[in-house]
Design a protein around this nucleic acid. Structure first.
Lengths: 393, 393
DNA sequence: TCATCTTCATTGACAGCGGAAAAGAACCAC
DNA sequence: GTGGTTCTTTTCCGCTGTCAATGAAGATGA
């Protein structure tokens, strides 16, 4: 358990309590009877699980919400009181740190950014600690304690041990992040891979709620994929999972930094699109926004690049669906800003590559403000706080 | 519960009992102390779980096996008595039915084949019933009852309901296999997809024992992939899983019956190899065995076809590993007969396409006699008999 | 207005599972 | 023998979740 400070009374003392709490957390206000039906627990068990949660204040009754059933005693819905506990979520990228203060319902209350000059672990850790302490001060005004800190980093991260094994982006190796930041801030720290963290947020608070399996495809600086199977986030034996970006779909495609040709990431990630647009138009396009504008203004060369990228993404999603059969695929990421340009390519390539009834899969998009990555980190902290058995082993 | 006959005392009355039984089943003779360590149950719990299993005769002590520890009271290993219950496993292919009689340890005792002239459900079901009844008679000589029947069919199979939703190979739609065969034979019937069934066999009795995640890649008439994640076989929301054969890896590759170009199956499955060898050599090669012989005899064109197939398989495995990060990949299937010709291509293409530390994945091969498919079916029946919670929604 | 019905929520008794601790068993070594 | 060690069983106990009965709170209708 990567924790620095004591974690007073554990929220989920029993499996049933954990189940009930996460159910209420994810599915908004619910009556006890409804909870019993959904969790397949007995009504008695629900009552017994809810009581201590109400005594601690994490769960409250919400009589207004009453959906007045025609018959019988009116039911009183209960919901989680988000304001009872706060969490800090931190996302570390190559050039900045984004931190959010989120409540127990994972609603963002405060956002902070901090530019990063130096990627050395020492410097970055100092910046993280600084930002977290700032948010802790900020949190004092909210009248409830900060109960945990989540940090999301790209690369190979060992959540159990709180160690960043290898982050190519940051050039880190075996950084004991949880331990160090825990000591500096006095908070229980959860460290996880960034895509997995986002997946957790989606699973508990987003479009993955109630699904026992789904895939989250992120499009942006890289192309990633988080997976939930059997109600749990997939972690991979070697720290590698969801590397959909390095599935090669065209042996003649552009070469990727990973050494292969035609990786999805080498076609559809931001840098690849930039390069593609430059080559196609001959114009010195410098940012994703410029490339986007050029394509939207009708430049055929640029549009073609986006269309090709959409196809690559669609085909990648097809692969995921063919392999896993998730109940839903959620497409998200900063790159979604260009979704209008991707859409057709994604749709067509997915339809073509999905095998059999997999083509009927539910594929949806979800816009993703950049703070969302930090919110994902906060979600992992909330998960640790609750001590859910959704993530374990 | 797809069952026709009553299932007397359920084996796994409690989670602990199920855990203990499957542990002993998979890990051969074990002392109670060892079981306790592996399952993380208390020694007392193990004793209590083992006793009723011994009383029923499914588990027996095996003093010979004693590995004489230097100190302390000698431990008495226990193991499952395979001969205490039998199961029939049936694999249905396009042109024949293979049925095996297996014991509780999933060791094959009798094998039967039956050629199939007609693929209509009615005719096939009659043949299955006939073959099963034959094996039931056969089983009488073994002095223990047949306790279940497993049937493996390719395509979209709903194990819970025992229904074959759609099998392209057989041209079946919504055939209520479990119900009908259950009524005809009086046995509890479990129906599952063939690759998943094989995966179950591997998970419990093969190279997947003790792993919480692995992938089983089958190479033969088709290319398939069974997945185990979080200790459970992945089933897919739409009945589609592990369709690794229809991951397209080359837009310019041969066209596949699924409508795409360059599917792995269109390059590396038996029919594709046959066609490739015919085209490359101009010779009228008719069977996989002939093609193999030609390549082994040194024909460069034929060898090239196999090498290309190996590469396709290797790349497909790379995709699986990049997406899931399984602890191990097991390559199996009839096509493995040509493994010497595939090997280099698989190895190289896998190494190239695996991302980062995924390249260190444990990839192994496992020869697969054709009865193995039927044995997989028997394994699903054993699983149902035990009532394990390893497989459950 | 009040009895009745329906559904929700709570309570208390209860069964069963698995853990802790202690006792028993079986062997070795001195 | 005696002591030491490890495996196994037994006994007791706490705890969790279910069952069944009870209480609560409104709608309905005579």
């Amino acid at each position: 358990m990567p924790s620095a400070s004591a974690r007073e009374a554990a929220l989920a003392t029993t499996p049933a309590a954990s189940l009930v709490f996460t159910t209420v957390l994810s599915h908004g206000p619910l009556t006890r009877a409804e909870i019993a039906r959904r969790t397949r627990l007995s009504a008695a068990a629900v009552t017994k699980a809810v009581r201590p949660l109400m005594e601690l204040g994490y769960v409250i009754e919400d009589p207004n919400q009453g959906t007045r059933s025609a018959l019988g005693r009116p039911a009183i819905p209960v919901r989680v009181d988000g304001g009872k506990a706060f969490f800090v979520g931190v996302k570390v990228t190559g050039d900045e740190i984004i931190a959010v203060l989120a409540d127990l319902c994972c609603r963002i209350r405060v956002v902070r950014h901090l530019a990063l000059a130096d990627r050395q672990p020492g410097a970055v850790l100092a910046s993280i600690a600084e930002l977290v302490l700032e948010l802790l001060t900020e949190a004092e005004g909210f009248g409830a304690p900060v109960r945990g800190l989540g940090i999301a980093v790209s690369g190979d991260v060992d959540r159990e041990d709180g160690v960043v094994r290898y982050s190519p982006f940051l050039q880190w190796r075996d950084v004991r992040l949880a331990e160090i930041i825990g000591a500096a801030t006095g908070l229980p720290v959860t460290v996880d891979n960034d895509v997995r963290a986002l997946t957790v947020a989606e699973q508990w608070f987003g479009a993955g709620v109630g699904l026992s399996s789904f895939a989250l495809v992120t499009v942006g600086a890289g192309i990633g994929c988080g997976l939930v199977v059997h109600d749990r986030v997939v972690s991979g034996a070697h720290g590698v999972t969801g590397e959909i970006g390095h599935v090669s779909i065209d042996p003649l495609g552009p070469c990727c930094y990973c050494g292969n040709n035609g990786c999805v990431e080498a076609i559809a990630a931001d840098p690849a699109i930039l390069r593609g647009v430059r080559e196609a138009t001959g114009k010195p396009v410098a940012t994703a926004a410029e490339a986007l504008e050029l394509a939207r203004s009708g430049d055929l060369g640029a549009r073609e690049v986006y269309a090709r990228a959409g196809q690559a993404i669609g085909q990648a999603i097809g692969s995921v669906v063919n392999l896993f059969g998730p109940q839903r695929v959620i497409i998200s990421g900063e790159g979604l800003a260009a979704y209008d340009l991707f859409a057709e390519g994604i749709r067509d390539a997915f339809a073509a590559s999905a095998f059999g009834s997999a083509a009927q899969s539910d594929v949806m998009t979800r816009p993703l403000p950049f703070e969302e990555w930090a919110r994902g980190a906060a979600a992992t902290a909330i998960q640790s706080f609750i001590g859910s058995d959704t993530y374990e082993e």
